[in-house]
């Protein structure tokens, strides 16, 4: 994605919501994942809580639609209707320049949490995992760990562990001093 072209205006948010609705209706897992990643990458440059929520919701929806034990559950059809209605409302709110916080967090995320709790095989819910994943994405882009955690609401213990399993720390420009020099600092203090 070309960050140069990201314009964090009403139009950009509207675009994310429209794409998310279309991808959800079409069971487009790849599309939802892309939306989630693009939204969180925008947040790396400009703090925007709505975009964090949009990223987390898109990620969660992508995870839910990729698991048959959710989509074949009895509540799935009602869940889809609720989310689509909410996304229509988000779209209207964005167009009116209104605050999205309530509907994103209190409606859509609550619906996701309820669906997840009903059918999940795991203790850790899909939104929880979304926060960790997207926090690690922000860290991978260069934000500090605490900054990434603060923006996404993820647990730092879990993000640190997740980051450790990736190649983030092996990327160029991350090594600043030799290990010999650093070990020398310890020897200076401890003998």
């Amino acid at each position: 994605m070309a960050y140069e072209n990201v314009v964090l205006s009403r139009e950009a948010k509207k675009g994310f919501v429209e794409r998310m609705k279309k991808a959800f209706v079409e069971d487009d897992i790849v599309g939802l994942k892309e939306i989630s990643n693009e939204a969180i990458e925008s947040v790396a440059l400009v703090e925007d809580k709505d975009l964090v929520d949009i990223s987390l919701i898109a990620y969660s929806l992508y995870k839910l639609i990729s698991k048959p034990h959710y989509t074949e559950g009895r509540s799935w059809a009602m869940f889809v209707d609720d989310v689509l209605d909410d996304l229509d409302e988000v779209h209207a709110l964005v167009r009116a320049g209104k605050d999205l916080h309530g509907i994103l967090e209190e409606d859509i995320m609550r619906d996701i949490a309820i669906m997840d709790e009903s059918y999940s095989n795991y203790l850790k819910d899909v939104l929880y995992k979304a926060r960790i994943k997207q926090a690690s994405r922000l860290y991978a882009l260069g934000l500090s760990l605490n900054r990434a955690v603060a923006l996404t609401g993820a647990d730092k213990f879990k993000v640190a562990a997740y980051v450790g399993t990736t190649r983030i720390h092996d990327r160029p420009f991350t090594q600043t001093k030799s290990v010999k020099e650093r070990l020398g600092y310890v020897r200076e203090v401890l003998g």
Partner: peptide, 8 residues
């Protein structure tokens, strides 16, 4: 690092 990751 950030320039390389974000292509900016």
């Amino acid at each position: 690092y950030i320039e390389a990751r974000m292509h900016i």
